[in-house]
Design a protein around this nucleic acid. Structure first.
Lengths: 347, 347
DNA sequence: CTGAAAGCGCTTACAG
DNA sequence: CTGAAAGCGCTTACAG
């Protein structure tokens, strides 16, 4: 039973297009056209619709629009984690680009295994137009199999095994290679590596760069300790490296967070950086320049990775295509600060 | 024109409930019931539906579900920014709680003025069940006027002017009061304040704490310089404070980021912290303990703020009520590190 | 237990 | 220029 026509009190339910049409005494089609500026609408009706919409504080229901238009103007972002400076920077890059393109962001994180990732992906259907994917801890085949073929996607730091999915990659190999070569050129002869988690692509690539840099010219000494990309694991790895008989004279941690953990271990052991041991990281997260001594590292252009990934996705959304095949590698850059004892430094 | 029945190749459009129904030779109602486990379904049909759904890799369309069920299981998060450790920690708290409650997160940031915030809010209709709101740079009245009355909301660090909206607040006043009292007790007599942006509630409250702490017992010296909660503004404020005739012997920056900027200015001026000037911040973002010297600050429990805000929102969603009125203040906590020269310290 | 039908709130050919 | 109607993909009383 509706309240009598013209009742003063509107229902507390948000106004729908029907309410606007009723108040303006036009059809819902006209309301839709007037509000969206599509198809000519007479000046008077236009005005009536505008007034009615304003009075009712009408806002279109996005789910209904998404259903009929097959467009959500939203992008799903699946990350392994949402925490820490790395992801903060990444999301920042994505967010900025999305805002610029008028896209919203639906974020989802920490899907530990394949089935959780599958669930997260399934939950996105009908809420997003496309997906940005970073699940370095999963077998690259998993997301490829999971993805509905109709869903545009861009992979971040995941080498699609069949090379079919558009992908942006950090030049982990090149960055690590350059860093270790730099350390060698500084005169360090016992350079140890702290890796990331087993099977993580970034970590594997960085390790490959380390190995190759030690090959030519061949290094007599090398040592690899496993880390987990966490501060704690960096600390533990640092202690392990200091414990042995033959201490490294330089430690290359596969990311900055571990380098910082390692730094704590070194300082705590009463050693000095870079006096006793040089230290380097990877990523160049903001904190890297604030630790003491400021950390020499490899800049990964995290924000750029986010921005370009979103731009790539937005491009395939616009074309309503999947934009298959494109693969882009983002260059890295050596950032020399004091933790490796160079004269050159940057703050 | 449909392809002949039983055509081998499914269309590339994602499967709908109709496709499943057709393949399983049942009605869509049965598919819905079978897949959702609602209403009894015969064992055989259940099985047929399951098989069909699996074969078609069927996933329900969330927009359609949202439309009919009036539930999106998504929460909107409107923040002034998404960048930096403060927001990273906040989002982390929100994300964790959301995951636990089975809610998705639609994030939106940097709506500079009221109309942008209004737009962001409008865009959320039909995509979210409720909203977490933090817009400290806006007049508190703005969001109150903007909000559809039917939309559950929780305000974070925004004192709702009519006290009607559920709100979580950091105890900015108490934290600042405690910090300045602590500095006084350490013997500092010329304590300067670097504020946040004008009109920002957090900043105003912290300033109030500063003033009140200097009142009893009355301090002969006080000085306030405006900052913008950014590192750059902290740096500039630091230079300004050092330039004058009567230098402060302690500087309380209204957030950690400014404290770090200020630290750079102090060190660059050839002064020592805490030897020449003590320094304190607010928030206790992760980086605070990594700068040199480690920063004395006020812990704001950022992650907790996020978690509790989401929990409060989830509670009103469950009850399908707006949960009006509740207001909770989160306690702060002094974190004494080396930047103020205490013997006590924490890392 | 099962299906036909109504309806969520929109947009868009299709007629007039 | 305007409106009646179909339809987006679902769920859920309502009959049987």
């Amino acid at each position: 039973v509706r309240t009598p026509a013209g009742a003063a009190k509107e229902s507390r339910r948000p106004a729908t297009i029907k309410d606007v049409a009723r108040l303006a005494a036009v059809s819902i089609a006209t309301v839709s056209r007037a509000l969206n500026g599509k198809g000519r609408v007479g000046a008077e009706l236009q005005e009536r619709v505008n007034t009615a919409a304003r009075r009712l504080r009408y806002t279109p229901h996005q789910a209904a629009r998404a259903l009929i238009m097959r467009r959500t103007h939203t992008v799903g972002v699946l990350l392994p984690d949402i925490h820490g400076e790395y992801f903060s920077e990444l999301i920042r890059g994505i967010d900025r680009a999305a805002r610029q393109k008028g896209l919203h962001l639906l974020v989802s994180s920490s899907h530990g295994d394949a089935s959780e990732a599958a669930q997260a992906l399934a939950a996105m259907k009908g809420r997003v137009d496309g997906v940005l994917l970073m699940t370095p801890h999963l077998d690259p085949k998993v997301p490829e199999r999971l993805l509905p073929e109709s869903l545009p996607v861009v992979m971040m730091n995941m080498p699609a095994c069949n090379g079919q999915l558009p992908t942006l990659l950090t030049d982990n190999y090149g960055g690590a290679l350059a860093m270790v070569r730099h350390l060698k050129s500084m005169g360090y002869r016992r350079i140890a590596l702290i890796t990331g988690p087993a099977g993580n692509w970034d970590s594997d690539e960085r390790q490959r760069g380390y190995r190759d840099a030690l090959k030519a010219p061949p290094a007599a000494w090398s040592r690899v300790v496993r880390g987990q990309f966490t501060e704690d694991s960096g600390y533990a790895a640092g202690r392990e490296l200091l414990a042995g008989e033959h201490r490294p004279d330089a430690i290359f941690a596969s990311n900055d967070v571990m380098a910082i953990g390692c730094l704590c271990a070194i300082l705590q052991a009463g050693l000095r950086v870079p006096g006793d041991i040089a230290l380097a990281g990877f990523d160049d997260i903001p904190i890297a320049r604030y630790v003491t001594p400021p950390l020499t590292t490899v800049r990964a252009q995290i924000t750029e990775l986010g921005r370009q990934s979103l731009d790539a996705l937005a491009a395939s959304l616009r074309k309503r295509s999947l934009g298959r095949g494109a693969r882009k590698v983002l260059a890295t850059q050596l950032v020399i600060r004091e933790s490796c004892g160079s004269a050159l430094r940057e703050r």
